[in-house]
Design a protein around this nucleic acid. Structure first.
Lengths: 372, 372
DNA sequence: GTGAAAGCGCTAACAG
DNA sequence: CTGTTAGCGCTTTCAC
């Protein structure tokens, strides 16, 4: 049966004939159900083998009313953030024999609606919606016959189940880490003001400052775009401000990398004079930075894993909880924040004591991906 | 029908009852087949609408023997190169109402075999195999009942159909582009010797040198790893060699970016004194480079599109061709190779004349992807 | 222990 | 024009 000459696949009936039994018996033998004489079972298995029999899952699904399939639907296209989530989902689901149908919404509501229709017609057992997290997205609605989980891009409807990474806590952790290495004069350079992520990270950073009774250098975050260019520019702004600073928390790894370049080129030593922490743990960025960048890992793979796990439970009848669940971020310590021990003494004791030095959870370094 | 109270979906029979007709008639009305009185059709459509009817594609597929589904199977995990391919596939297939099942092989042959089994049991209409292109991969075999196309990672078996990007021609084009901007003393810095990609790019580059009767600076390519670090190191090697050079073709954008940093920091002006061309058009890299990097775009999305198109034909009965087809790369001109017109006059006319200045095909710049 | 029959939801073929 | 029937491939009673 070469590619040209497609032959009809063998059915249970075919196997039955060859084994000299009935279709029902074949089914039992193949699925290890019922009481069969071992010898009969062997005969059936042999016949199936010889015919290259492969169960037609369509037929089984039709009967069972389950397809062991879930749809992953992106509102925007699959990008740097959604892909690790999707892989986490696929990974977890694949272990449970569940397949993933891919639907790329491309920021087009019409297209998305069309995909939703297709998924329902294909009778998927559940749907995971993902996309940019900059802002909440419209709900697919409450009247779907299957469970839906929103990941990264949370649903506008609080009755839906949404999973996001803990931006706020991550940012707080980043800043506390800088404090814990002895730095005191810390600035925050981040993305566009209107992004939800920007706001959440500012909140987290602010909380960390309050906790130790310090003020942000320049009094407020420097907001710009998520780019290396902006990071370089911010470095220049900081330097020219004349205000002393010994730490910078950046809202993204790209910004951090630009900032690192800017600092190096204006003669500031990292981490000796300034500690820098980024956000995202975009490994190619963080590892190629000079020096390698300490940053917050979004745990996107884990986010996908959790989403898949919750969805699996829901598919098995357990009611889905409502509202937003946030999955913790991880601090990944690299060189850019190393403490060198010569910092000025800590300022007057703050109301809340500085968090003790953290046990950094190192991520294993990934090899650079080979070229195709 | 909230998420908890899953109700059985309406069937053609339900619609039939409600519309006061038979199931057969419902089918015709819904699919626009056969001769129906317009009024009847309307009644059926209304009933379907009211019941929220959605065709059960499983049942249809079972009957039709086609599922309008293809599997995309990676040998390694989905990475920087395979993802654009997969998106190209999904894009093309989605337009034809075909869904994509995702299978992440993770470099594990057992796992891959398991996925293949599942795909066949689900009766997909075709399979696209993808993965790292560093070396050919084992064939899935010739005895599959459905067409298979290998993309990026070509099959070891020449009877299979493989699609790859035109590495060799891309490299040749890159070097010719440097020549066309007036440069003559060009070096080649690239990846590990044992990679097929490295070899193909060296071949292409060599061809371009031969065409204009020039020698590669240092006489041979500098081979290292696919990293920025190696790019920086190579810059230093080149500079310290004392040999004059005015152009460098890098085997990857990462190498190129490191090289650009190295050159800048050792006081060499790009593009004024040295022109640099990369490979991959990894946009975040190429655009963030200083200056923005001229490079070769692998056309991965197009590769996916072509693969999907060939697969569609094959699924419709057209026999798949055998062997490797290579899809052209594109030159993307940015600042790093700009001609400044003050170069030394061209050397003694070569046997083959220098290619005339190329019409650079600019790609639209992509915005930096917003954070989640 | 094993076989026969019914049915999952749909559509194509043939009656009426 | 519309209804009836059969069957896609499988599993699951329920007889034997």
């Amino acid at each position: 049966m070469r590619q040209g000459g497609r032959r009809k696949a063998a059915t249970v009936a075919d196997v039955a004939v060859r084994a000299g039994v009935s279709p029902g018996t074949v089914s039992k033998a193949l699925n290890g159900r019922g009481q069969l004489r071992p010898e009969t079972r062997q005969r059936v298995l042999a016949a199936a083998e010889e015919l290259g029999f492969s169960t037609n899952l369509l037929a089984r699904s039709l009967l069972e009313g389950r397809t062991y399939t879930v749809g992953v639907l992106t509102s925007d296209s699959f990008g740097r953030f959604t892909i690790p989530v999707m892989l986490g989902v696929e990974d977890t689901l694949g272990a449970g024999q569940i397949s993933v149908l891919l639907c790329d919404g491309r920021d087009d509501r019409i297209r998305e609606g069309h995909y939703l229709h297709t998924l329902l017609a294909r009778r998927v057992d559940g749907i995971i919606v993902t996309g940019r997290g900059s802002d909440p997205r419209p709900s697919l609605g409450q009247d779907l016959p299957i469970p839906v989980i929103y990941v990264l891009a949370q649903s506008e409807d609080p009755r839906d189940r949404s999973l996001i990474h803990a931006d706020r806590e991550g940012a707080e952790r980043a800043v506390k880490h800088l404090f814990s290495t002895g730095r005191r004069r810390i600035a925050h350079v981040t993305g566009p003001q209107h992004h939800l992520a920007t706001q959440r990270r500012i909140e987290g950073a602010t909380a960390a400052f309050s906790a130790v009774g310090q003020e942000m250098v320049l009094g407020e975050p420097l907001m710009g775009e998520w780019s290396e260019r902006w990071g370089r520019e911010a470095a220049s702004i900081l330097v020219r401000s004349g205000k002393p600073f010994d730490g910078v928390f950046c809202g993204s790894d790209q910004i951090a990398r630009g900032l690192l370049d800017g600092l190096r080129e204006s003669g500031h030593k990292v981490p000796d004079e300034v500690g820098v922490v980024g956000f995202d743990n975009w490994e190619v960025m963080a590892e190629a930075a000079r020096p390698p960048l300490t940053t917050i890992d979004l745990n996107l793979h884990e986010l996908g894993r959790v989403a898949a796990t919750e969805l699996l439970d829901a598919m098995n009848g357990k009611a889905l909880e409502s509202g937003v669940r946030s999955v913790p971020c991880r601090l990944v310590v690299r060189e850019s924040s190393e403490s060198r021990g010569w910092f000025p003494p800590a300022p007057a004791a703050a109301a809340t004591p500085v968090a003790p030095a953290e046990r950094p959870e190192m991520l294993p370094g990934h090899e650079t991906e080979p070229l195709p």
